[in-house]
Amino acid sequence: MDCGTCDSASPVIMVQPDAVEVNLTMTNKAKEMLEDAFGDDRSHALLVGVLSGGCSGYMYDLQIVESTDLPCQELNIGGFRVLVPSASSHLLDGIEIDYVDRLMGGGFKINNPNAASSCGCGESFS
C-alpha cells in the first residue's frame, strides 16, 4: 500500500465547528456534591468534555483535573473552576450540570439543550 508518506497525499480538510463561548449553569445539588468532592482545595478543576462514542454518538466526560493539555475555556461557577475543551464547546453551550440522588443511575447528570436525542442511560447524546 502506498500510504502517501511523500507529498502525494495531503490530509483531508475536515470542517470543524468553531469554538463558542460557553454558558454553563450548575444546580445547587451539583454544587453541594462538588463541595464534598473538592473540600477546601480549589487547585483542581472540573473538566466537562465530550468524547465520541456511546449509543448516540457523543458521550459526556466529567473529570476532576489539576490541569489539562487541551485548549480549554475556564469558567468560574459558584467558586469552582470549570474547564470546557474548546473543541467540544459547540456541544456544551447552555448545559446545566445537575446531580441526581438515586440508588440506580444516580450521579452527575447533564441537561443539554443542544442534544437532539440521548440514549436510555443518559450518558450519550446526539
Binding site: M1, D2, C3, G4, S8, A9, S10, P11, V12, M14, V15, Q16, G49, V50, L51, S52, G53, G57, Y58, L70, P71, P85, S86, A87, S88
Partner: peptide
C-alpha cells in the same frame, strides 16, 4: 464517512488522509 468521523474527533489530534488515488 469522513464527515461522520471528523465530527467526532473533538480535538483528539487525529487526522485523516485520503490515499485512494495512490492505490
Amino acid at each position: 464517512l469522513v464527515n461522520h468521523l471528523s465530527k467526532r474527533i473533538l480535538g483528539r489530534g487525529i487526522s485523516i488522509t485520503d490515499i485512494s488515488h495512490l492505490n
